[in-house]
Design a protein around this nucleic acid. Structure first.
Length: 710
DNA sequence: GAGCACTGC
C-alpha cells in the first residue's frame, strides 16, 4: 500500500531524532520491520531504546530542562537537528510530574512528522499508540482520554481552539519548528500567549482556582531568533542544546551567475568528475527547472570520461506521484553516482541519506502578494541566509560534506536573515475569519509576533464582508461563525452553506472537495496529447467544475482502480484526498443540520448558481477582442488554455482561481531567448465556467462594488 | 494553446 504515510520515516524530525544504527532510509515500515526482529526479545529492545535515549544530546540537559520549565511560564528551547528535543522533552516533563492531571500537546507543521514522532515516543514510553501517547492529524486521530502526550499538526490545535479557546485540555503546550513561521504557528503563538495570560489571571481568583491550572508554553526550534521570541513571551528562559552535525565545507562562486541552471549543470558535472563518491543534492526552484536540468545532465552525461561512473538522476518535487518520489530512496545502480534534483521539499520535509554534496542555486519559488497586480503570485526569489544554511546542512547529516553555493559570498551576505513569515505576505482571509470566530474582534490589534501588513488585513476584511460573514461594522455574524467551522477557504464555506437553500449540498460538497486539492489530472511532459485526449470524455459544456464532477463520478464507478486512473491520467493520490475531504465535509454538514444528501440531480444550473454565492466577485465579462475584464478591478484576463471553456466565447464567466504566467514564456515563443528579460505577469483563468447573466447574485450591496454592478 | 514552491484544517 503506497500512501502518504510511507514517508513518515523520511521526515526530518523522525530520521534525525531516531537515527538507529541499522537505519534504512526507505521508510518507517522498513525501520520498524527491522526493529521487530528485536522485539522477539522485548527486554532487549527496551534496553536498546533506553540506551539510545541516553545517548541523545538532550539527555545531558534533562535536569536542567525540567528545572527551567518548572520555574518559568514560557521556555524557549533551541535544539539543532538530532538533539532529541521533539521526542524527549515531553517525556522528561511527564516523568517529572509537571503535567498534573492534564496532558501535553506538541505541535508540528507537518502530518508525517506528528505521526512518526508519536509512534516513536509510544515505543519509548512502552504504550500502544493512541493510549498514553497519541497523535491527532486531519482524517486520522489516534488519541484517547488516556493520552497524556499528544502530537498534533498546528492546524489541528488551531481547530481545537474553536471549542476550547483556553486550551484547558492541556497543562503544557509545546510549539515545535517555530522557525518555520507558518501562518498557523504564528496564530498559535498569539492564542497560546493569550490563553496563558487569561488562565493566569483566573488563577488569582481563588474561587476559580479549582477549574484552572496554569499553562506552560514551550517554543522549540532548530535555529531561531531566540531574543525575539523571548521578548514576545516575556521570558528569559532559553535553553540551547547542541545537535549532531558533521562539518560542511562551503564553496562560493567567484563571480555572480547569470544563469543558475547553467551554473548548476556545470557544478554538478564538476563535482561528479573531481570529487570522491557520495550523492549530490541539487536545490532548484521548481519542476520546470528540474526537468530541464535532468535533460541537460543526461545529454552531457554521455560525454563523460570513460573511467568515470555514470550519473543516475532522481527528481523530487511535491507534485510528483508518490511512487516516483520514493525512487530517490532506491540505492543507485552499481558504478553510478546519484544526483537528486529537488525543490524545497528536500530542505525540510524529506531527508535522503547518502548525500555528501549539496549544490545550492540560492533560489526558491515563493508565494507572495503583489500589490501592483493585486494578486498572489508565485515567483522565483533569492532564499534567506537561514534557508541557505539549512540546505548546506543536508550535506553533513552522516559524514563531513561539501556545499557548493552558486552565488558569491557577497551575495550571501546580502541575503535576508530569515525568510519573510507567511503572515506578512499571504492571503489572510481564513485567518481573519478564524480570529473573529474566536472572539478576537480587533484583528488589527491582535498580539502578533510579527504584525501582518494593514493592507493584507484590510483586503481580508473586505473579502469577508462581501461574503456576508461580517456585518458593516466588521463584527462576525452567525453566518461567519458557521463558515469558520468548515476546514476550507471561506469562499468555499459560503458555497456549502448556500447549498442548503439551493438544495444541492451533495454536489456542492463534491465540487468543493475537488477544488481543495492540487490537481486531479496528471499529465506527464511526454504524454501531454494523450492526456488531453483522455480528458475529452469527461468534458461538460458547462465548464470545468462540472467536468471535475464527471471525473469524480467515473472514479467512483471504477472504484478508484489504479489502472483506470493511469489510463485516464487521473492523479489517484489527489482523488483519494478528494474523497477524504468529502467524507469530512459530509459529516460536518450533517452536524450543522445541512443535509448532505440533498441533490440537484442533473440540474447543473443550480449548482453553478450556488457557486456564485462564494465566487460572484470573481466574474469577468467578454470583450470585443475575446479577452475578458474582471468585474471588480477591470483587469484584463484570459481563459487558461487548460480550461474546457477556452475559446468558447462565453459572455460572462466565473472563476475559482486566477493564475499568473511569466512573460518569459510569451517572449520565448516570439524571440526564442529569454535571458535578458525581467519577470512580468499576465493573468489567466485556470478554472472557469459559463454563467448566464440572469443568474448572477443581485444586488451587490457592497459600496466597493457599486461601480461594477451589471 | 500552457504550466503547477511547500504545507495544513
Amino acid at each position: 500500500m503506497k500512501n502518504k504515510r510511507k514517508f513518515s520515516s523520511v521526515d526530518t524530525v523522525n530520521v534525525t531524532e531516531t537515527p538507529l544504527k541499522n537505519k534504512n532510509s526507505k521508510g518507517n515500515t522498513k525501520i520498524f520491520s527491522k526493529r521487530s526482529k528485536f522485539s522477539t526479545d522485548s527486554k532487549n529492545a527496551t534496553v536498546r531504546l533506553q540506551e539510545f535515549r541516553r545517548g541523545l544530546p538532550i539527555w545531558k540537559e534533562r535536569e536542567n530542562l525540567i528545572r527551567i520549565v518548572k520555574d518559568n511560564a514560557t521556555t524557549i528551547i533551541m535544539g539543532e537537528m538530532g538533539s532529541g528535543k521533539s521526542t524527549q522533552t515531553p517525556q522528561f516533563l511527564l516523568d517529572a510530574g509537571l503535567t498534573s492531571e492534564s496532558s501535553i500537546a506538541l505541535t508540528q507543521p507537518r502530518r508525517v512528522a506528528a505521526i512518526s514522532l508519536a509512534s516513536r515516543v509510544a515505543r519509548e514510553v512502552g504504550t500502544k499508540l493512541g493510549h498514553r501517547v497519541g497523535y491527532s492529524v486531519r482524517f486520522d486521530d489516534k488519541s484517547s482520554n488516556a493520552t497524556v502526550i499528544k502530537y498534533l499538526t498546528d492546524g489541528m490545535l488551531l481547530r481545537e481552539l474553536l471549542s476550547d479557546p483556553l486550551l484547558l485540555n492541556y497543562s503544557i503546550v509545546i510549539l515545535d519548528e517555530a522557525h518555520e513561521r507558518t501562518l498557523r504557528t504564528d496564530i498559535l503563538f498569539g492564542m497560546v500567549k493569550r490563553a496563558q495570560e487569561i488562565r493566569g489571571n483566573k488563577l488569582k481568583n481563588v474561587v476559580e482556582t479549582r477549574k484552572y491550572i496554569p499553562l506552560k508554553v514551550i517554543v522549540m526550534s532548530a535555529t531561531l531568533n531566540s531574543e525575539k521570541f523571548a521578548a514576545y513571551f516575556n521570558t528569559s528562559a532559553i535553553l540551547k542544546i547542541p545537535g549532531r552535525q558533521f562539518p560542511v565545507n562551503i564553496h562560493y562562486s567567484n563571480v555572480p551567475q547569470s544563469d543558475y541552471l547553467d551554473a548548476a549543470l556545470t557544478c554538478t558535472l564538476q563535482i561528479h568528475v573531481e570529487q570522491p563518491p557520495g550523492d549530490i543534492l541539487v536545490f532548484l526552484p521548481g519542476q520546470e527547472d528540474i526537468e530541464t536540468l535532468e535533460k541537460l545532465i543526461s545529454e552531457y552525461g554521455t560525454n563523460l570520461p570513460p573511467d568515470k561512473p555514470k550519473i543516475f538522476t532522481c527528481l523530487l518535487f511535491a507534485a510528483l506521484p508518490t511512487e516516483q518520489q520514493t525512487k530517490v530512496f532506491d540505492p543507485s545502480p552499481p558504478g553510478t553516482r546519484k544526483v537528486i534534483l529537488a525543490t524545497n521539499i528536500a530542505e525540510t520535509s524529506i531527508t535522503i541519506s547518502g548525500v555528501r554534496y549539496v549544490v545550492d542555486t540560492g533560489k526558491c519559488k515563493i508565494r507572495k502578494f503583489n500589490s501592483r497586480i493585486k494578486m498572489e503570485i508565485l515567483s522565483v526569489e533569492n532564499i534567506s541566509k537561514n534557508s541557505a544554511d539549512q540546505r548546506m546542512g543536508r550535506a553533513g547529516r552522516e559524514a563531513p560534506g561539501s556545499c557548493f553555493r552558486l552565488y558569491t559570498e557577497e551575495e550571501y551576505k546580502r541575503m535576508e536573515k530569515d525568510t519573510e513569515p507567511e503572515i506578512k505576505r499571504c492571503n489572510l482571509t481564513s485567518i481573519v475569519l478564524f480570529l473573529k470566530a474566536l472572539g478576537i474582534e480587533n484583528v488589527l490589534e491582535f498580539d502578533y509576533l510579527d504584525a501582518p501588513s494593514r493592507n493584507l488585513l484590510k483586503r481580508a476584511l473586505e473579502q469577508l464582508f462581501i461574503l456576508k460573514a461580517l456585518d458593516n461594522k466588521g463584527k462576525i455574524n452567525d453566518l461567519g461563525k458557521k463558515m469558520a467551522e468548515f476546514p476550507i477557504e471561506p469562499m468555499f464555506a459560503r458555497v456549502l452553506i448556500a447549498s442548503q437553500s439551493m438544495e444541492c449540498t451533495k454536489e456542492a460538497i463534491d465540487i468543493v472537495s475537488l477544488l481543495s486539492v492540487d490537481s486531479i489530472f496528471f499529465s506527464p511532459h511526454d504524454q501531454r496529447e494523450s492526456a488531453m485526449d483522455m480528458k475529452k470524455k469527461f468534458i461538460s459544456p458547462l465548464g470545468d467544475l462540472i467536468t471535475f464532477l464527471n471525473v469524480l463520478k467515473s472514479f467512483e464507478v471504477h472504484k478508484g482502480n489504479s489502472d483506470w486512473c493511469r489510463q485516464n491520467f487521473i492523479n489517484k493520490r489527489n482523488m483519494k484526498h478528494v474523497t477524504d475531504i468529502r467524507k469530512q465535509l459530509t459529516q460536518l454538514c450533517a452536524r450543522m443540520d445541512i443535509s448532505p444528501v440533498t441533490s440537484c440531480g442533473e440540474d447543473f444550473e443550480i449548482i453553478l448558481k450556488c457557486m456564485s454565492f462564494g465566487f460572484f466577485c470573481q466574474s469577468a465579462i467578454l470583450q470585443p477582442d475575446n479577452s475578458y475584464k474582471t468585474i471588480l478591478s477591470n483587469q484584463n484576463v484570459n481563459i487558461h488554455p487548460s480550461s474546457t471553456l477556452f475559446n468558447k466565447k462565453i459572455e460572462v464567466i466565473m472563476y475559482t482561481e486566477l493564475v499568473s504566467i511569466n512573460v518569459k514564456t510569451i517572449y520565448k515563443k516570439c524571440f526564442g531567448d529569454t535571458k535578458k528579460l525581467a519577470d512580468g505577469f499576465s493573468a489567466k483563468y485556470l478554472d472557469a465556467f459559463g454563467l448566464d447573466i440572469g443568474s448572477r447574485q443581485k444586488p451587490i450591496e457592497n459600496p466597493l462594488l457599486a461601480n461594477y454592478v451589471l
